[in-house]
Design a protein around this nucleic acid. Structure first.
Lengths: 134, 134
DNA sequence: CAACATTTGTGCGTATGTATC
DNA sequence: TGATACATACGCACAAATGTT
C-alpha cells in the first residue's frame, strides 16, 4: 500500500510494489503492467508519479516500454558465450545514445567493452553476452 | 542550438549538447554543469525538460547529481584489475536496488557478476573493476 | 550557531502529439 | 476509424539538502 506519510517518495513506493510483483513471479516475463492511467487511479497518484516509477524499473532493466503499446516485464534472452581473449581485458559500462541505437539496446542494458592487446576495442550488448574463460 | 522544428525531443537535443561538451573535454571530469534553472533559461526550455536531459546523462553514467549541490561530470576512478578465473564466466547487468545501496553505486553504473565453476557468484561494481585474463 | 540563498527532489495539473491495436 | 497508451512539454508549488554568510 502506498502511504504518503512514509519517508519514501510515492513513485519509489510504487516502483517497490511493482518490483516485488516482478521478482515474485506475480508479473512473469512478457506480461504487461497495468497502463499508466490505471496505475494512477488504483494507487491514487498522478500520472507523472507513475511515469517516474516505471522509468526507475526501465533503468534497472526490469521492464521495456513501447509507445502506444504499453510496458511489459523484460524477457531474458539466451546469452551467447564470448571468450575473453588472452592478454586482454573487459569493462562494463552504460552505452551512449548512439551505441544504444546501433545495437538496439533497451534502457537499463549495459555493454561489455573488450580491449585487445593491440589497443583495438569492441562493444557487445550486455544482455546477450556471457564472458567466458576456458 | 536547440531547434523545436527538428525531429528530436528538446530534452534529447539538450542532452546531446551536454554530452558533446563532456566528450570534448569542454566540461572536464569533476566540473559542475550549469544549474537546472540556468540551463532552462539559456536554452529556452522549462525545467522539466532540463531535468529529463540530465536524467538521460545520469543513466549513461556520465554525471552525478546531489540534491542541494548540483550535477557534476563523473570522475573516472581507477579500475582494479580482477582476473576472470578459469572455467568461470561473467555477465554485465544493472544492479538491484539493494545492490546499489550495498556497493554505493551511482546511477548508470552496472555490475559484473562472476559465476565460478562451483556455482557460487560474486558481484562487483562495474566502474571500479577491469576484468582481465593473463 | 542561525539565517539565507541556491539547487535539486517531489508532486500536481494541463495540453497536445504520435504510435499501436 | 476510433480507442487506448505512451511521449513530450509547459506551468506551479513546496520540500529538503547544501554551502555560505
Amino acid at each position: 500500500m502506498i502511504d504518503p506519510r512514509r519517508d519514501r517518495a510515492l513513485y519509489r513506493q510504487l516502483a517497490d510494489l511493482l518490483r516485488e510483483q516482478i521478482d515474485s513471479g506475480e508479473l512473469p516475463p512478457g506480461s504487461p503492467l497495468p497502463s499508466e492511467t490505471t496505475l494512477a487511479q488504483t494507487h491514487g497518484l498522478a500520472r507523472p508519479a507513475v511515469r517516474q516509477a516505471i522509468a526507475l524499473l526501465r533503468a534497472e532493466g526490469l521492464v521495456t516500454t513501447s509507445r502506444g503499446y504499453g510496458t511489459r516485464v523484460r524477457e531474458q534472452v539466451e546469452r551467447t558465450p564470448l571468450e575473453l581473449p588472452a592478454s586482454s581485458f573487459a569493462i562494463a559500462r552504460m552505452p551512449s545514445d548512439a551505441e544504444r541505437l546501433e545495437h538496439d539496446l533497451d534502457d537499463g542494458v549495459p555493454v561489455l567493452e573488450i580491449q585487445l592487446p593491440d589497443g583495438s576495442t569492441s562493444v557487445h550488448p550486455g544482455d546477450r553476452i556471457r564472458l567466458t574463460r576456458p
